[in-house]
Computed example of a mutant assay.
Amino acid sequence: MMVAAMFVFGCQDAISRYLAEVYSVLGILLIRYWFFAGFVVLRAVRAPGGLPRVIQSRRPYLQCLRGVMLVVQVWMIVNAFMLLGLVETHAIFACYPLIITALAGPVLGERVSLMRWLTILAGALGVLLILRPGPGMFSPAALLVLLAALNFAAYGLITRLVARDDPPDTSFFYTGLAGAAAVTLLTPWIWTPIAFADWGWMALLCVSGTLGHYFLIRALDLAEASRLQPLAYLQLVFAAALGVLVFAEPLPWTTVLGGAMVVVAGLVNLRLTRLGR
């Protein structure tokens, strides 16, 4: 289930890149989030206790903030797909679990050991290798991906924070509804007509997002999140493969080595977390 989710998310990223070359990114997100919002509402209605139970939150403002942050992160990532391509974007973005670890101390009061700080440093070196040190290393596109990773890490930390008071169904519900509301407010300024031939791709994008989340939810029902996390890096593999095969993106050795360093650092960090080190 987890491998299937990562494959679907990788395909979703490829479709997003294709559509974003022609249409407004926010316009794409508008349709995607309306579909997503309908899915979470339907799921909430069918959940035990129904919509009244799911909508109740002890931290509604943080829940809404999470939803808006995720929309912003997706907007940044899709724009980065067009500027850097799927390969480099995902290779850099894979550092977000290490950012979560670095911020877990000051934000959540969690202890971060010296060994885990070393994994963070190794991951940072991997990102620098991907960026290819030189005068143009920190291009606006690369900074956009790093900002997206920081945003997603903050989203992850807030998610862990609200999980102390709200069940997963509630968090999932607000992710869809708050995100859809935020994008809808911009509708008058972002909508552009979509060609009939591309509505099939748009429908596939919406379905793939929902299907990916379904696979992810089922995977989390069957196994602990800590055991599934290593498989999350497969999204980098699938997205990179599609970038090379479909969009003919280059695959420099620096990106491969740097991405491997980031992934290995993340896996070692996860192992240390399991061992309580």
Rank of each mutant, 00 (worst) to 15 (best):
P135K: 15
G136V: 13
G136C: 13
G136A: 14
M137C: 08
M137Q: 13
S139K: 02
P140H: 03
A141E: 07
A141Y: 09
A141W: 10
A142N: 10
A142K: 00
A142E: 10
L143S: 12
L143P: 07
L143H: 10
L143G: 12
L144D: 00
L144Q: 06
L144C: 12
V145N: 06
L147A: 14
A148V: 07
A148N: 05
A149M: 02
L150S: 11
L150W: 07
F152V: 10
F152D: 08
F152C: 04
A153T: 02
A153M: 02
A153Y: 01
A153P: 01
A154T: 12
G156C: 02
G156D: 08
G156T: 01
L157E: 01
I158L: 05
I158A: 00
T159V: 06
R160L: 08
R160A: 07
L161Y: 15
A163W: 11
D165L: 10
D166L: 01
D166I: 05
P167N: 10
D169G: 13
D169Y: 13
S171Y: 09
S171V: 11
S171G: 10
F172H: 14
F172P: 12
F172V: 15
Y174T: 02
Y174L: 03
T175R: 15
L177K: 03
L177W: 12
A178F: 10
A178K: 01
A178Y: 04
A178M: 06
G179P: 04
G179N: 03
A180G: 05
A180Q: 05
A181Q: 01
A181F: 09
A182G: 07
T184D: 05
T184K: 06
L185K: 11
L186K: 11
P188N: 05
W189I: 12
I190L: 04
I190R: 04
I190V: 09
I190D: 01
T192Q: 14
P193S: 11
I194Y: 06
